[in-house]
Design a binder for these strands. Structure first.
Lengths: 303, 303
DNA sequence: GCATAATGTCATCAATTTGATGATGTGAGC
DNA sequence: GCTCACATCATCAAATTGATGACATTATGC
C-alpha cells in the first residue's frame, strides 16, 4: 500500500495527529512525546503509538535521537501532508487549535513571531448575529454610528463580510439610504434579526459594485532597479500579476497591498513596489478613491 | 455538576465537536447532522450522539426544527466555549481545520467573505528550513536577492519571523554585513542549515532595534469630526490606545494600520484615521522611515 | 386525506481506538 | 559504575465510535 493510501485509510483523529507530527518535523525539525500529549490530550502510550505509526508510514522522515529523547527530521524528509501556506502562517503566528481554547490550548505563537496584532477586533456578540443574518439571508435591525451622519437606527440586509486589512466590514443593502453600502462591524450596536424575507431588489445580485469584477494588472514599480526581485516576490511568470477582484473591494485591496495607482507612477515611497499598469481599469469603481495615487478621470473621454 | 465542569471532563475530541456545534449555532444559527459528519468524518449515529450531548449540557442553547430537520440556536443562547476573535475571523475567511487538508477539508470561506487574498506567499520548502533554524537557534546559509546589492550567498542567524502585513520577513544576524537585518522570505533561495553554534554577539539580545520596545500613543485623527467613532472602533477607554512594539517593526505596524505620523497631522487621505500623538517616540527607530508622514528630525534638538 | 418516501432519533451490540500498567532499554549525571 | 529519568513496547481493560434496525416525524404525490 502506498503512503498516501495508508494515510487515507486512517481515522480522522489519527490523521490529525500524524499531520501535527509532520508539521512539527517540517517546521521545527523535532517533536517529542510531550508535544503530542499537550496538543491532543492523549496519554503517553498513545503518543508513542502515533510516533511509531508515523515512523512506519514514513521511515525516511523521522529519526529518534536517543541522547536527547526526541524525534528529529530525517535527511530525506518529504512532507506526508499538504501544509497550506495560509494555514501554516496563521498557525505560526496565532498558535494551533480550532475551537477549543482551553487552558492548554494557548493562543501563543509557535515561534518568536511579530505580526500586526489586531488593533481593532469586532465584538463577537455583534459579529455573531450579523453572520447569522448573512447565513439566513435575513434583514437585521442595527444601531449604527456613521462618520457622516452620526448615530442612527436602520435595517440592513447583509450578505457578505469584507476584510479590508484594516478592519472588518459587512456588505449590505441599507434600507435607510436605499443603497448597497459597507458597514464597519465595530460601529454596529444591538443587532436584531428580523423574521422576514428580503425584497428582490435587496439581494446581492443587484449590487452592481459587488457583482462587477475588475481585472487589475500589477507590474513591478517602474522606478525600481531590480524588477526581477519583485517578480520573484509575487511569483510573476509573465512579468505581471492579474488580480480579479470585486469593484466594491478594489480600493481596499490596492491600499492594503500598497499599489501605486497613479497614471504616471509618481509615488516614490518605499512601500510602493507595484504599479497598476492600467489605472483606467478602475473607471467607475466607487471604491477606488482609497487606491494610493488614484485620480478620478475628470471626464469619460480623458486619456 | 455545572456546565463548564461537565465540558472540562470530556475527551479532547468530544470537546472539539461540541465547540464546533457551539460555533455553528452562534455564527450560523443552525447546524445539521451532515455538518458534523463532513467536518469530523464521524458516522451519522455519532453526530446524533454529539448533538444529544450538547443539548443535554446546554438545553437553552439549541432547539430542533423538525420541519426543516435542522438544529437551531435557542432563544437564550449563551456560548459554551470561548471563541477567540482572531480565530473566528480566520475560520470565517479561510475555513476550518488545522493540519489535515484532505479532499473534505476545503480551504473555503464559511460565509461569503472577501479578504485580501495573499498576493505573495512564501514557499514552504524555504520557510520550513528557516523555521527550523529559528527553532534550533542555528545559522543557515542562503542565497539572497537584495534590492540594493543583487544576488549573493550569505550566512544568517535567524531568530524571529515578522509579518509586516505586506509580506513575511525573517529577522536575523547577517554575517555578510555584520548587522541585524530583515530578510524577505520570498527572496531567499536554497536555505541550508549549518551544524554550528552561533556566536554570542549574533544572538537576539544584541539586536538593539529588536530589544528596544517603543510605546506609541495613537489618538483619533484631529481632522475627524467624530472622534468618538474612532474611539469605538479601537475600544479606546481613555481617548487613546497605547501600542508597545519592537522598534524593528514599528514602521511596518504604523504603515499597516495607516497611522499618520506627521508632527502636524497633515495627511488628509481617508484611510488615516489615527494619529501618532508623539512622533518623537520614533526617535532613533531605523524602521520608522516606512511610517506614513514621518520625517526624521534633522537634529536631536529639533522640537 | 392518506400512503409513501425521506430523514432523523435512539437503543443496542460489535469493532475499534485509547488509556493504564509493568517489563525493559538507553543515556545523563553523580 | 550505579542510579535516575524517560522512552519503547506488549498486554489487557475501558471507553469511544460505527453499524444496524425499530420507530417517529414531516413533506410530497395521488
Amino acid at each position: 500500500m502506498t503512503q498516501p493510501q495508508r494515510v487515507e485509510s486512517l481515522s480522522h483523529a489519527q490523521r490529525e495527529r500524524l499531520a501535527y507530527i509532520d508539521f512539527r518535523l517540517y517546521f521545527f525539525g523535532e517533536i517529542g512525546r510531550p508535544d503530542l500529549i499537550e496538543r491532543f490530550g492523549v496519554a503517553p502510550a498513545g503518543a508513542t503509538r502515533d510516533l511509531a505509526l508515523y515512523r512506519e508510514i514514513a521511515p525516511q522522515n523521522i529519526t529518534f535521537d536517543g541522547s536527547h529523547k526526541i524525534y528529529r527530521i530525517g535527511q530525506a524528509f518529504s512532507p506526508l501532508f499538504n501544509h497550506a501556506p495560509q494555514r501554516v502562517l496563521s498557525a505560526l503566528a496565532l498558535g494551533f487549535g480550532d475551537g477549543v481554547n482551553g487552558p492548554n490550548q494557548s493562543l501563543q505563537p509557535l515561534l518568536p513571531c511579530e505580526s500586526p496584532t489586531a488593533l481593532s477586533n469586532p465584538r463577537m456578540d455583534v459579529l455573531a448575529p450579523v453572520c447569522r443574518a448573512i447565513h439566513a439571508k435575513r434583514p437585521v435591525a442595527i444601531r449604527y454610528h456613521s462618520m457622516s451622519s452620526g448615530e442612527s437606527e436602520r435595517v440592513i440586509v447583509p450578505f457578505a463580510l469584507v476584510d479590508t486589512g484594516l478592519r472588518w466590514h459587512v456588505r449590505a443593502f441599507d434600507r435607510k439610504s436605499g443603497e448597497f453600502r459597507d458597514f464597519v462591524v465595530t460601529r454596529i450596536e444591538a443587532p436584531t434579526l428580523l423574521d422576514e424575507e428580503p425584497q428582490a431588489f435587496e439581494r446581492p445580485e443587484n449590487d452592481i459594485q459587488w457583482t462587477r469584477i475588475v481585472e487589475l494588472e500589477l507590474v513591478p514599480h517602474p522606478r525600481l532597479e531590480h524588477p526581477e526581485i519583485i517578480r520573484m516576490d509575487y511569483g510573476m511568470t509573465d512579468g505581471s500579476i492579474r488580480m480579479r477582484v470585486r469593484a466594491a473591494v478594489a480600493g481596499y485591496m490596492l491600499l492594503r497591498w500598497s499599489v501605486d495607482c497613479s497614471p504616471d507612477h509618481r509615488l516614490k515611497e518605499e512601500q510602493y513596489r507595484l504599479w497598476l499598469s492600467d489605472p483606467l481599469a478602475l473607471y467607475g469603481v466607487e471604491n477606488a478613491k482609497l487606491a494610493p495615487g488614484y485620480q478620478a478621470p475628470s471626464s469619460p473621454k480623458k486619456r
